[in-house]
């Protein structure tokens, strides 16, 4: 097994080796030092093995700031096409938006994300989609630490017998709760932006009780 892994590693493309190198240094626990990559994917459906990513949208968040020009949006050429999802994200199979092959898009994305902490709403879904795409292209899984805003929200709910916590909270539900405009809902980048603001508002709520919140607290 080890042998296999080692052999495989030698064949990995340069961009992946560069990506792995970025994780060498140990990171501090202070949220102010961190770069977060808030992302969302639009896909052909919800099946990890059958469905494909059509679009990845991501923005960088550092010290509560988002630089618009650092936003990342990529559309991917796919042979699989889910008719059911098209009305939601509005990405048509043969539309004229410039698109990349899956491998090209992944390379760009991996270069973009670096060692930042990934934030997404129901993060497991987006990460599984991306990791499956990596696997199809002979690459290992992402190494990034990640946070899920749906999970983080639950930390803000006060402890009381009177409230029944739900298992899942949708992005729409939470955008309403925190009065965030839903204008660009269902575009990858629009959802990434909503998620970023949501993350900041949740963080603010968690810090209201006066405690300094560290990355460790969020990962709990």
């Amino acid at each position: 097994m080890f042998q296999f892994f080692k052999k495989n590693k030698a064949e990995l493309p340069q961009f992946w080796k560069d990506y792995e190198l970025k994780f060498k240094d140990k990171m501090s626990d202070d949220l102010e030092d961190k770069t977060f990559c808030v992302l969302d994917t639009e896909t052909t459906g919800f099946d990890y093995s059958k469905d494909r990513i059509l679009c990845i949208g991501a923005i960088n968040l550092r010290q509560r700031r988002i630089e618009i020009k650092d936003g990342y949006e990529v559309f991917i050429v796919q042979q699989v096409y889910g008719k059911d999802a098209a009305p939601i994200h509005g990405i048509l199979k043969n539309s004229l938006i410039p698109r990349l092959s899956e491998l090209e898009a992944l390379e760009q994305f991996v270069n973009y994300v670096g060692n930042s902490i990934i934030i997404a709403h129901h993060a497991i879904f987006d990460l599984n989609m991306i990791n499956n795409a990596l696997l199809r292209n002979g690459l290992p899984e992402l190494k990034n630490t990640y946070l899920d805003t749906s999970h983080l929200y639950k930390k803000t709910i006060i402890k009381s017998n009177l409230i029944t916590k739900k298992e899942h909270y949708t992005l729409d539900e939470l955008a309403d709760k925190f009065t965030i405009s839903k204008k660009d809902r269902h575009t990858a980048m629009g959802d990434a932006y909503i998620t970023a603001i949501l993350f900041l508002k949740i963080l603010n709520k968690l810090q209201e009780s006066g405690k300094k919140v560290t990355l460790k607290d969020l990962l709990k």
């Binding site: 923005i59 988002i66 618009i68 936003g71 949006e73 204008k183 660009d184 980048m189 629009g190 932006y193």
Partner: peptide, 10 residues
């Protein structure tokens, strides 16, 4: 580069 967010800001 123009993107969804820059359009919304504009």
């Amino acid at each position: 580069m123009k993107n969804t967010i820059s359009q919304r800001v504009a």
